[in-house]
Amino acid sequence: MRGAGAGGMGRQLKSEPIALLGIGKIARDQHIPAIARSDAFHLTATVSRSGGVDGVENHTDIAALLAARPDIGVVSLCMPPVPRFDIAMAALAAGKHVMLEKPPGATVSEVHKLERLARAKGVTLFATWHSRHAAGVARARAHLRDARITHVQIDWREDVRRWHPGQDWIWQAGGLGVFDPGINALSIMTAVLPQPVHLTAATLAFPANRDTPIAADLVFAGAAGLRVDAAFDWRQEGPQSWTITVQTTDGELRLTDGGATLHIDGVLQTVAGIGEYPGLYHRFAELIEAGQSDVDTSPLAHVADAFLLGRRTTVAAFHD
């Protein structure tokens, strides 16, 4: 449920100490720089078994962090979704405000359980979708609010060896495979379309030696005959493509570069933003101040539907 109240009174944040858990590629590339730019938070501690951050105290697990630093009331979780649930439960049970890297969980049900615990403890839970903070997304949503949409084409094609080198967890059950980037497209789709859509067909291509798909073709249906076609592929070589094209009765809207660039009827639009991950931490601070949570599971539900409804095909084995 998007924007659900977390209970309790809001409070003004003034550079609150925050702990970052899971110091991998996404933490180093995005979270640490975003926190460094934030006026609301300063990085005070990390939890990592493979190395922390220079100049910041590090702990081996969530229990050690909670015992050593009861003064830290805010945590951001960056580890893969399968091990994240128990850590999030421990943090919420201890009364911490929790931010979840996308996808918010390995299953929809566990995210709902986290949401219930956050509500019971009166703390903020923020299930993030970083692509919704891409520069062109808010403008696209506003433009489409009253539009008559006839067709949407999503093309999300990238080279897994370039973007996820050596990340075996992503090929294991619960790792999502090509839906790890594809869910970013679904998070934009669910943000900009004025009416919901539902999955009607899917084909999932699994490498012979992997538990998660390397490609997926999806079809969604909406009101008044709306159709959405989505193609996700991790085998793209050369130029990478993260594009959403929306046809309306009044013209065409196109988001490219993962939502960063917006064209309307072929004309480049001027859009601005503070950046995807800085935008997440700004939103997290707003939610804590307001005493609210933001837990929208709709992109994850679409992925779950794809695994439920999808026709499985086997393709060539993948070797990193």
Rank of each mutant, 00 (worst) to 15 (best):
F41Q: 01
G225T: 05
R235Y: 10
P239G: 11
G175E: 03
T124G: 09
V303F: 09
E16Y: 11
V192C: 12
L114N: 04
I72M: 03
A290G: 02
M9G: 11
R157M: 04
A45W: 10
P207V: 02
I274A: 13
L92R: 13
A134M: 11
V74P: 05
L92N: 14
G266V: 11
N184K: 10
G166N: 05
A140Y: 13
D294R: 02
D146Y: 02
D217R: 11
A90C: 02
G222Y: 07
Q153C: 06
V271C: 12
P278Y: 03
A127S: 13
V295A: 00
L255A: 12
D54S: 15
L117S: 09
M189H: 04
A36L: 00
G310W: 00
D305H: 13
V315Y: 07
V74T: 15
V56L: 08
A68P: 07
V108F: 11
R148Q: 14
S241P: 00
L92M: 13
T46Q: 00
V219R: 15
P103W: 10
G73K: 06
M99W: 14
L77C: 08
Q195E: 15
T314E: 12
T128Y: 08
V123L: 03
H130T: 07
I264F: 11
P181M: 02
S293W: 01
V315L: 06
T124D: 06
S76C: 04
Q12Y: 05
L280Q: 15
A316M: 04
V295M: 01
M1I: 08
L117A: 13
A94L: 03
V295Q: 03
L66T: 11
D229E: 15
I35N: 00
